[in-house]
Design a protein around this nucleic acid. Structure first.
Lengths: 247, 247
DNA sequence: AGGAATTTGTGCGTATGTATC
DNA sequence: AGATACATACGCACAAATTCC
């Protein structure tokens, strides 16, 4: 870290074309260190006093950077204990799942029905790649408290795995992505429409063909803002509904 | 503000049974001042140095309190200018509206059909009040780009107005609440289900009775976490869909 | 247009409280 | 109980943005 109190031409500022405050530069530096694997998930960082000396900044400045990173979810700070690299949320497996039983709640659960590699020009358009690109297509049946509630098909980039079978896929695909493919979903966009039972969904949901269904089309992005998943979920409106909270 | 650096028995701590940090006490104090109308919306607060002296805290401590209040959306701080009491967002009229045309987008627009005062025990339960409480019930027709897309009925507390007619209600009820009733909606929860055209909704949406419809049940809270609105929206799935983004 | 005054933002350093180990 | 580590609090100097003349 450069020691000019109000930097005007250090490395980062020069590259980014901006005059970023020193505490932001420090936080950027720490982000790079963490992503480069300098500290592992869950590992404790050096204590503030040490790190401040090492980076040649005042403790207060370092603290501001650490606080910023904590607010962004990359670090966890515990008084009396230390500052830790935060693990991607383990319990967040179903954090982005928005279906609930009509009476409220329910524990999500999924069963993989089929996995195959294929091309799909419509899906390729969503991902913004060439229509000859191969995707993994995964079909699943979803439950809340053992009640079948939805049929689902999803696509991810074929490049993530050479082989992929139903057996090796986790309950939570999001966790599988993180632990086996090295990325994780940070935000999604859902469109909820109305559709009708096809023979496929009727079979899975045990409904008569042609009955009305809720239909969720989801695009999922990684924290780098790249599209990493596209999915379609047909849910049975007799047993569940979609819940959305916003501020 | 008490001047013990690490307060152990000031007014607030005594009342709350906790030892709150001084900067939190300061922010609590400022919240009370603002709510009491000591400073109006948009008005500038005294400069940091003055306010710090007045409250008998260090400037840094005051700054931490002000930063906290800014993060909570009560204040706005502008370098070189001052610290201002934030006005509730004007442009947020349709911020919480989540229906879009199937092809995407569309400008929201609403027409009030009927307004009347009535009791409704089901609605009273949502508000958490006695079932004999009177509510205003407002029926509206919603459009996107002049296309009729939804029929809506909503309830608000009867106590907000003695009289209320369709003519005096704004396009945006949320704005009307803010400007005439003195509260505003800060967060909502939607449940999206499937329903079918009733004679009423069929008439408004120009559909045949019994056709499937999307159904949104919404509970809206003010920033004080009190339920202030309950609404039901039936939307035509042939022309629009519900969109939800989350991180 | 431009410079001075004002006001918040950044940065430094230190002392002490409080939670954890 | 003692050592360690983060949290709070104080105060000062200067930068940057805004305002005003």
């Amino acid at each position: 870290m450069t020691d000019d109190q109000h930097p005007k031409s250090d490395d980062f500022a020069a590259r980014s074309g901006k005059n970023r405050p020193k505490y932001v530069q420090v936080s950027d530096l720490l982000i790079r260190e963490i992503k480069a694997g300098h500290w592992r998930e869950g590992e404790r960082l050096p204590v503030e006093a040490e790190l401040a000396v090492e980076l040649k900044v005042a403790v207060g400045t370092l603290r501001k950077a650490l606080t910023l990173l904590e607010s962004e979810g990359l670090l966890e700070r515990r008084q009396g204990s230390g500052t830790y690299v935060k693990k991607p949320p383990k319990e967040a497996a179903y954090q982005l799942f928005r279906l609930e039983l009509l009476q409220g709640g329910g524990t999500p659960h999924a069963k993989t029905l089929a996995v195959r590699k294929e091309k799909n020009s419509e899906v390729a358009r969503v991902f913004g790649v060439s229509s000859s690109t191969l995707f993994w297509r995964i079909e699943r049946k979803r439950f809340l408290n053992e009640t079948p509630i939805a049929a689902e098909e999803m696509w991810i980039r074929g490049s993530h795995a050479k082989q992929l079978t139903a057996e090796e896929l986790d309950e939570s695909l999001y966790r599988h992505y993180r632990e086996h493919f090295g990325f994780w979903i940070s935000h999604v966009e859902d469109r909820i429409r109305l559709d009708f039972c096809t023979p496929w969904s009727a079979d899975i949901l045990n409904k008569e063909s042609g009955a009305p269904l809720g239909w969720i089309e989801r695009i999922s992005w990684s924290s780098q803002d790249s599209v990493e998943e596209y999915s379609r979920t047909w849910f049975d409106p007799d047993v569940c509904h979609y819940v959305s909270r916003m501020a």
